[in-house]
Design a protein around this nucleic acid. Structure first.
Ligand SMILES: NC(=O)c1ccc[n+]([C@@H]2O[C@H](COP(=O)([O-])OP(=O)(O)OC[C@H]3O[C@@H](n4cnc5c(N)ncnc54)[C@H](O)[C@@H]3O)[C@@H](O)[C@H]2O)c1
Ligand SMILES: NC(=O)c1ccc[n+]([C@@H]2O[C@H](COP(=O)([O-])OP(=O)(O)OC[C@H]3O[C@@H](n4cnc5c(N)ncnc54)[C@H](O)[C@@H]3O)[C@@H](O)[C@H]2O)c1
Lengths: 209, 209
DNA sequence: ATTTAGTCGCGAATTTTTTCACAAGGTGGT
DNA sequence: ACCACCTTGTGAAAAAATTCGCGACTAAAT
C-alpha cells in the first residue's frame, strides 16, 4: 500500500495502541484481535485495521495479531526503535514536571539539557540533569545532536526561544506556550494547549444543556 | 443555521481565536477581518468564517468584525462568561504545575480543591489552595459545586479516582494519565496525552525522511 | 475432508471537515 | 447617486477520515 499522507489521528492512535500492547505484554497476552484492541482503547475494530493497513500487513487472517510482534512494528513505525535527544527550554513549573517525568525516558526520549534565564533556577538539579543558562542553547543542541525542542517559557518569549532552537538545528518543536509560533516549513511543530483543553470541556458543559 | 454537532476542531479553534482577539484588544485593535484572524492563528479565512457561522452572524460585510464584540460572543459560546469550579486529584509534579498556573484563573477556571494521598504533600500550599486528603473528594465536589475533575495521578489509580469523581457528581474530566478511562455516557472526558504528542513528533521525524 | 467459527485486509460507501466561489451587503470617494 | 472596492455568510464542491461489507484466509472440531 502506497501512502504519502498518514492522518495525524492515525499516528496518535498508533501511539495509544502501542502503549496498550505494552500493557498486554506485561499481562502475558500473546495474541489479540483488532476487536480486542479496539475495545481496549475505545475505537472501532475497522479503525484499528485501517490504521495498521497504512503501514503493512501485520496480522494473520482468522487469528489476529501476535502482541509482541505488532508492538515491535508499531515502535518501529513511531520511530521509537531508537533514542531521541530533547532539550527543554524553561525550567519553570511545567518544564520541571516534564523533565522529571519518567514516562518519557521509558519511551526512548532522553533529556539532554534544560535551560533557563533565571539565576535562581540555574544550577538546580532536575533528576539527572542540571538546569543551565540559556546561552548554552546552541552548544547543547549541537553537541548532543538534539532533535526535539520543548518550549515551556512564558508566551512573550516563546517565539524568540523557538527561533533560537531552529537556528541551533532542532528539527521538531513541542510548544506548551499559548502562542502561535512561526517556524520554517521543514520544522515539525506541535502545540499542546492545556487551556484549549479545559475550554473544550467548558464549551461542552455549557453548550449541551 | 441549525446545527447539532459542532466539530471538535472548530471548538478548539474558537478557543484560539478568542485568545488572539484578547491579545488584539490589548494592542488596541478595534476591527479585524477573517483573513487577519486567519493569518494570526495560522488557518484559512474560510475556516474562520465557517467556524463562526455555526453560531451566528457576528461580522459586517465589507468591514469585518469588531474585536471586542466578537471576543464577547466567543467567550459566551465557549461557556467562559461564567466561572467553573475544578478539582485536581494528584498534587504531584503535573498537578502542582497546573494548580499554580495563572492562565486558568484568568479564563474563569477556579481551583476549588487539590487532593492527594501522600501525607508529605497534604498540607502543602499551592497558590491559594492547600493540598488536602483524598477522603474529602466527595465533600469538596459537592460543597463547591465542582463541574470539572482533573486527573493527575499515576495510571494505575486513574480509573479508581475517575470513578470517585463521577460518583461525587463531576460532569467533565480532564485526564492526564496515560490510561484509557471508562466513564458513563453523560460524562465529558478529554485526554491530554503528553507522551502521544512527543511520539507524533518522533513519527514525523522518523517517517518523513 | 468438510464444516464451522472466527479474523484480517481492503475497496467501496458514507460521513465529516475543509475549501471554493460568489451573491449580498457595506464603505468611502467623487 | 453612483461607482469602485471590500468582506461576510453560505451553498456547493472537494478532500479527508471513518465505517461498512465481504472475499480471503486460518484453526479447530467432527
Ligand atoms: N504550568 C501550567 O500548568 C501551564 C498550563 C498551560 C500552559 N502553560 C504554559 O507553559 C509555559 C510555562 O509555564 P510555567 O507554568 O512553567 O511558567 P513558569 O513561569 O513557572 O516557567 C517559565 C520559566 O521560563 C523561564 N524563562 C523566561 N524567559 C526565558 C527565556 N528567554 N529563556 C529561557 N527560559 C526563560 C523562567 O525563568 C521560568 O523558569 C507558559 O507559556 C505557560 O503559558 C503552563
Ligand atoms: N509529569 C509529567 O510531565 C507527565 C507527563 C505525561 C503524563 N503524566 C501523567 O500524569 C500523571 C501524574 O504525573 P506526575 O508526574 O505528576 O506524577 P507524580 O508521581 O509526581 O504525582 C502523582 C501524585 O498522585 C498522588 N496519588 C497517588 N495515588 C493517589 C490517589 N489514589 N488519590 C490521590 N492522589 C494520589 C501521589 O501521591 C502523587 O502526589 C501520571 O499519570 C503521569 O503518567 C505526567
Amino acid at each position: 500500500m502506497k501512502v504519502y499522507k498518514i492522518p495525524e489521528a492515525t499516528v496518535m492512535r498508533l501511539s495509544i495502541y502501542s502503549r496498550y500492547l505494552h500493557q498486554l505484554m506485561g499481562e502475558g497476552v500473546e495474541t489479540i484481535s483488532s476487536g480486542e484492541i479496539a475495545h481496549g482503547v475505545g475505537v472501532s475494530s475497522a479503525q484499528v485495521r485501517k490504521d495498521l493497513a497504512y503501514f503493512g500487513e501485520f496480522g494473520t487472517r482468522g487469528v489476529g495479531y501476535k502482541v509482541e510482534e505488532l508492538y515491535g512494528h508499531l515502535m518501529k513505525i513511531l520511530g521509537l526503535d531508537r533514542n531521541w535527544n530533547i532539550i527543554i527550554i524553561g525550567a519553570g513549573k511545567l518544564g520541571s514536571a516534564l523533565a522529571l517525568y519518567q514516562g518519557f525516558a521509558d519511551r526512548g526520549f532522553n533529556i539532554s539539557a534544560i535551560l533557563d534565564v533565571d539565576p535562581d533556577r540555574i544550577g538546580n538539579k532536575l533528576g539527572d540533569v542540571k538546569v543551565e543558562k540559556i546561552e548554552l542553547l546552541d552548544k547543547r543542541v549541537k553537541e548532543s545532536n538534539v532533535s526535539i525542542g520543548v518550549v515551556t517559557v512564558p508566551a512573550r518569549v516563546a517565539q524568540d526561544v523557538t527561533d533560537k532552537l531552529v537556528n541551533a538545528g532542532v528539527k521538531a518543536i513541542l510548544n506548551f506556550s499559548p502562542r502561535v509560533l512561526r517556524v520554517p516549513n521543514d520544522i515539525i511543530l506541535r502545540n499542546v494547549d492545556l487551556s484549549v483543553n479545559l475550554e473544550v470541556l467548558s464549551f461542552n458543559l455549557a453548550f449541551n444543556k
